[in-house]
């Protein structure tokens, strides 16, 4: 368990969090190597099945991150994402996934530091939680 390095899939919106991640990179904010970014136009575009797919493929955690409430480039996509994530969190345990493995955050374009911090925090939380064992057990 000592060597466990979680794999985190992050669905980040094109306008805010992707920019923040890029800023974290260009401003040399070093953060754990565990995160894999998938850029989407809006968090409202993230279909719950992408998240379930990520867990099934072996992701130890999934981050969905977009613009702050009221700041969505597409007016209200982040609110829709918030609604969907809430529902998804409710049903995830039925598939055998701990709902703590799914996280929704708002990280604005200038919050490079915040992005790096979020990833760091998430890695240590998931390390505590242990690997996603359910991926082997889940039956779809």
């Amino acid at each position: 368990m000592e060597d466990f390095e979680p794999t985190i899939i992050a669905f980040v919106c094109n306008w805010c969090t992707y920019t923040a991640a890029d800023l974290a990179g260009t401003s040399r904010q070093s953060y754990p190597t565990n995160v894999r970014l998938i850029r989407v136009m809006c968090t409202g575009m993230v279909d719950p099945k992408y998240i379930i797919k990520a867990f099934l493929e072996g992701a130890d955690a999934v981050l969905v991150s977009g613009c702050h409430p009221g700041d969505c480039h597409y007016i209200n996509g982040n609110y829709k994402a918030r609604r969907r994530m809430k529902l998804l969190k409710a049903i995830l345990p039925q598939y055998g996934f701990d709902e703590k493995r799914l996280k929704l955050t708002w990280i604005g374009a200038s919050d490079g530091i915040q992005f790096a911090r979020t990833i760091r925090d998430m890695v240590s939380e998931i390390k505590e939680l242990g690997p996603n064992e359910a991926k082997h057990a889940a039956v779809v």
């Binding site: 989407v40 136009m41 809006c42 409202g44 575009m45 993230v46 279909d47 719950p48 480039h73 597409y74 996509g77 829709k80 969907r84």
Partner: peptide, 10 residues
């Protein structure tokens, strides 16, 4: 259409 994709996930 601005391509936000909210329709697609809905």
């Amino acid at each position: 259409c601005q391509g936000c994709g909210n329709c697609a996930s809905e």
